[in-house]
Amino acid sequence: MKRTDVLGLSVPLVALILWQAMALLKHSPLFPGPFEVALAIGSHFREIAGQLGYTLMRAAIGFAIAVASMVPLGIFLGRFHKIGRLLEPVIDMLATLPPPAVVPLVMLFTGTGDAAKIVVIAYAAAVPLLMNTYEASYSVHPMMNRVARSLQLGKFETMLHVDLPASLPMIATGARLALASSLLVSITSEMLLSTNGIGVFLQRSQEYFSIDAGLAGIAFISLTGLIINALMFKLEKRWLYWHYREAA
């Protein structure tokens, strides 16, 4: 780890102080400050941590399914751009459906258990992955295409050896968005078809008007997202070192 970034850290610190000041001014159980939320984290720690496992497991499976299916599809649609152009509106249409509208439909086919939630998560994660992969694969530098042609690579080989590596940096950005939305939709789906998971904890907190407990749950989600994001960033730096070396 590098030395601590004092100046950088001051920005969120100021935000926290502002929040606490607002909470003190409002002085209402409906607007707890960071201090009250910290207290609530203390008292709900076990419950939240216990539920978070279910949420993360489903998010991970959904994300994995999305990566495994959407990256190849995106590369393919980028390479065979005529099909890609034709299907663009289909993708746009499917991408715009909000989870609260999709969940009841998915439930008809997969019931209310894990499968339903995983399908919805994979669906949501697919959107940024597909869009970024498609976009990146389509806009591979023309020079690369000439290289591929002069090496007499077939379509499949071009996709595997040219389009995929060239698209990786943008796929990584898409993957980060997708990972975020996996977690997000994992929680949303729990609130809509609740059996277990942190979404259920959040919903209970809301419905009992325990805003501090709800924010404690949200803080946990943030922290989880933070850790996942940091890991992702590390992996990205390791795997895509050539991209970063070039940009540095």
Binding site: P12, P99, P100, A180, L183, L184, V185, I187, T188, M191, L192, G199, L202, G214, G217, I218, I221, S222, T224, G225, L226, I228, N229
Partner: peptide
């Protein structure tokens, strides 16, 4: 910190 927060929550 803010990005992972689900709007539904």
């Amino acid at each position: 910190v803010l990005q992972p927060i689900p709007p539904a929550a």
